[in-house]
Design a protein around this nucleic acid. Structure first.
Length: 824
RNA sequence: GCCGGAGUGGCGGAAUGGCAGACGCGGCGGAUUCAAAAUCCGCUGGGAGUUAAUCCCGUGAGGGUUCAAGUCCCUCCUCCGGCACCA
């Protein structure tokens, strides 16, 4: 008997692995496998919610290593970000210090889970050696015209005192602190992701079937490509173009008003021309004061103001009143919409409110709608009526013809609009990568030359948020010399959105120490794409779009040669747990329901946590952590321990060659063994860890009830079993394997399936009569239909239903089922 | 409103269109024990039937396709996620 407890052996083997550097990936792989979990923000205490993600990649990494792959399984820290600054403010500790303290603690926790990372490649986005290249990417985008500055109304969080990207707003509130977001008119840096919108959509063809459908759908929605028409109206009072985007150009003859967004860039001009100047200014101010939530809440009441100006209808030359209203979005389409109250519900509501005329120009089933009795717009496609020369065309034909017509007349034509907006990357915060730009009074905006990178973040700064960048008040930082004209100039005071940091880190892992270039191109192209990428679904429309975008920019630059960075994506579910109040919530420090890695590992062990996490349910679904569930996993591992302990001798003496089975029971056991091997293998590769564990449990149960414990077959089964278990419970497997004295189980081979043991000779199949199961028969697997029918007829219960009946049809599915259709 | 996903025992969950409920938890019975815990073995969807053979019912509801439906199709209900005045 070898006595040991889990926490003890876990420490021992973790030390062993680290000393022998068993997880180190080769610099240049022959047979590569890149397994990656999304790197975390180092927030301190790690719990089982975090552990789940790491365990999943670890099973894959360990499995593929045993399969003979060169596995890259790295880890790092998404270490820039707001929480560090907030901690700094509340606890008077430098963000850098706070961050690294957290990293130290978190790293210890992760090591305690026995995750097989190559720590020599650890990445910290907040270190100059890393952010130098984040800045380099910024310069690359600038050079390519993909980074630009513009003055715009941007989302602003009054609590975080910084601007936010679209993706960082959840239901009108700041993703971080839940404060309602307001607007500010500021000049900021943007990345031109909209230029890549079509490619981000188009290249999803490479991801189809390999990424969760849900993520692809979410990205498709987020990008929101919509085909339609641009049509130019002219202002009557002055030669100003009022471009409109519409998907329903077939309703063009039904336009009775135009509406422009209050914050539209043309509004300054319109206000100047308008007789209603004061009212307009006031309305615009009022709109901008409102938060996004207020603006959408007000039960979608369509309120607006007549500008006193008119536009000219490009086809009928009618006079069309121009309104401004906040239901029109400045950032979508052209920021101006044509009002067609007859055929658009929103326009209908607006028209009713301001008593504007309603025109019917589309008709269905030959019945013209009665305008006076309408209680809503008729939005369906139909036949165009009252539409000049286009009358009589179907909506589809009309759209086609009108697009051609408008193009010819230079009044617009076919156009595409997207929901996705350019990526606002400036942040008025301290703890981030400085934007490597210089503002010179003479030369304007000048990029920092590459040789001067990194633009270092100063250590001493008053980082209390004041609505402007903390860096602006750092004399040592902000004052510089213009790289062009060499006179005094100012640095850009903003730092980059942390999503920029995380949009390329997977490339840096390949060559993390490189100081000469962002990475060695040859090496990156050997390792990329990431074969398995695992993380939470919450990154579907943020990180995962940004990373795809930046990767494509690098692709266009010839730095990487795969169009997509992540071959296969898997989104794992959350770990929930009951709180003291009795609610089942996501595990978190704040909710007080976290099971901390360090506590659990100390008391029960990492292997138990790992097996439980994997067994509890499908890995893409949430699961509730319960003590009962833990017990199941613990019992399983204790049973493993015992069966090996009770059969040490036979286990350490068996070779990897399966002996020939002699008895029926041996035959059955060896079949079970290789069936389990096959199932576990397939399950790992398809993210079905729960059923993989279940099949191992089943196999173990078979081993327990198998009587002849001296049998060579039994011993061989133990040998296979422990290998199968090793990616799931690596410490226990390593301990048991060590009894055999043949080195680490990590270097042992994953067994191959001996198909000969899987062959069935006789099988038991059900017999169905008129759709109901009436008995079971044993047949030879090769038996033909005739034989099977004969055997079926001999079955007592079956014959009861077949005798004196007319067999109308027989369906025999080889080795599966036989089905009779009979009548009286 | 739009786009997804999911509804299966007391619970977590299994089932390439082919014997629904694998595996685990819980429960019941037995073994072990002075006793308990732990452990081991067996049973465990509901109903009828003798504790049998066997039969009936059963995967959110209702229809359909099929020899055969948890699985495919249609309609609907509920829950979850994402987007949301996107012109």
């Amino acid at each position: 008997m070898k006595e040991f407890n889990f926490p003890e052996i876990e420490k021992k083997w973790q030390k062993f692995w680290e000393e022998k550097k068993l997880f180190k990936a080769p610099v240049s792989p022959k047979n590569k496998m890149y397994v990656l979990g999304m790197f975390p923000y180092p927030s301190g205490d790690l719990h089982m919610g975090h552990a789940r993600n790491y365990t999943i990649t670890d099973v894959l990494a360990r499995y593929f290593r045993m399969k003979g792959y060169d596995v890259l399984h790295p880890f790092g820290w998404d270490a820039f970000g707001l929480p560090a600054e907030n901690a700094a403010i509340t606890r008077n500790i430098h963000p850098k210090e706070w961050t690294f303290k957290n990293i130290e603690e978190s790293r210890e926790d992760i090591k305690k889970m026995g995750i097989s990372y190559d720590w020599s490649r650890e990445i910290f986005t907040c270190k100059p050696g890393y952010y130098k290249w984040t800045q380099w990417i910024f310069l690359l985008l600038y050079r390519k015209g993909l980074a630009y500055r513009k003055k715009a109304y941007v989302n602003f969080c009054p609590s975080c005192q910084t601007v936010l990207a679209n993706e960082q707003i959840v239901e009108g509130r700041c993703e971080r602190c839940d404060t309602p977001v307001t607007k500010k008119n500021l000049e900021q840096w943007f990345f031109r992701i909209t230029k890549y919108a079509d490619r981000l959509l188009e290249d999803m063809k490479y991801l189809e079937g390999k990424w969760p459908k849900q993520v692809l759908d979410m990205q498709r929605n987020w990008i929101g490509r919509s085909e339609g028409t641009k049509i130019i109206f002219k202002l009557k009072e002055k030669d100003i173009n009022l471009p409109v985007f519409t998907t329903r150009i077939d309703t063009i003859y039904g336009v009775t008003f135009l509406v422009i967004a209050p914050e539209h860039e043309l509004m300054d001009e319109i206000i100047k021309l308008s007789p209603e100047r004061d009212k307009l200014i006031k309305y615009r101010e009022k709109t901008l004061m409102k938060s996004e939530i207020e603006r959408t809440r007000e039960e979608r009441k369509k309120e607006g103001i007549f500008t006193g100006l008119y536009a000219v209808h490009p086809l009928t030359e009618e006079r069309i009143p121009l309104f401004t209203a906040d239901y029109v979005l400045a950032h979508y389409g052209t920021g101006i919409v044509m009002g067609v109250p007859g055929h658009d519900q929103r326009d209908f509501e607006f028209a009713k409110m301001y008593n504007l005329p309603i025109k019917i120009v589309i008709q269905k089933n030959g019945e013209p709608k009665n305008v006076d009795s309408m209680d809503g717009a008729m939005e369906e496609y139909g036949v165009m009526v009252n539409s000049g020369e286009f009358t009589g065309l179907s909506s589809e034909e009309g759209i086609k013809k009108l697009n051609e017509y408008l193009r010819e007349k230079n009044l617009g034509g076919y156009a595409v609009s997207y929901k996705i907006r350019d990526w606002l990357i400036s942040r008025q915060r301290y703890w981030g990568a400085p934007i490597p730009m210089v503002h010179c009074e003479k030369c304007g905006i000048v990029p920092v030359p590459e040789k001067d990178l990194p633009v270092l973040l100063p250590e001493v700064v008053d980082y209390l948020p004041k609505g402007k960048s903390p860096l602006a008040s750092s004399e040592e930082f902000i004052n510089t010399i213009c790289p062009e004209c060499k006179v005094k100039a100012k640095r850009d005071p903003d730092t980059m959105d942390t999503f920029v940091d995380s949009s390329w880190y997977f490339l840096r892992y390949v060559d993390p120490q490189n100081d000469e270039e962002i990475f060695d191109k040859t090496l990156v192209n050997k390792w990329l794409p990431v074969d398995y990428y695992i993380g939470g679904i919450e990154h579907a429309t943020g990180h995962l779009i940004y990373a795809r975008f930046i990767h494509k920019v690098l692709y266009d630059e010839g730095l990487v040669n795969t169009p997509e960075p992540f071959e296969r994506l898997f989104t794992q579910g959350m770990v929930l747990r009951r709180t003291d109040e009795g609610n089942v919530e996501m595990m978190s420090k704040r909710a007080g329901n976290a099971v901390r890695i360090r506590d659990f590992v100390k008391e029960r062990g990492a292997d138990i946590a790992r097996v439980y996490t994997l067994f509890a349910g499908p890995p893409d679904q949430d699961f509730e952590w319960t003590d009962e569930g833990v017990k199941g996993a613990e019992r399983f591992l204790l049973r493993v321990k015992r069966i090996f302990n009770e059969n040490i001798e036979i286990f350490i003496n068996i070779t990897d060659k399966p002996p020939a089975p002699r008895t029926e029971k041996e035959k059955a056991l060896i079949k079970k063994c290789y069936k389990t091997l096959k199932k576990v293998t397939e399950d790992i590769e398809n993210f079905r860890f729960n059923t993989a564990v279940a099949s191992m449990m089943e196999f173990l149960n078979n081993l327990y009830v198998f009587e002849d414990k001296k049998s060579g077959i039994f011993a061989h089964c133990l040998y296979i079993f422990i290998k199968l278990l090793s990616p799931f419970a690596p410490h226990l497997a390593e301990e048991i394997w060590s009894w055999r004295n043949e080195g680490s189980i990590l270097t042992a081979n994953w067994p191959s399936v001996f198909e000969e043991f899987l062959k069935e000779e006789k099988v038991i199949i059900p017999v169905q009569i008129n759709g109901k199961i009436r008995g079971q028969i044993e047949i030879n697997i090769d038996a033909d239909e005739k034989e099977v029918i004969e055997i079926a007829k001999q079955n007592k219960n079956v014959s009861k239903y077949l005798n004196e009946k007319n067999i109308k049809k027989v369906h025999y599915v080889r080795g599966k089922i036989i089905s009779f259709v009979v009548s009286d």
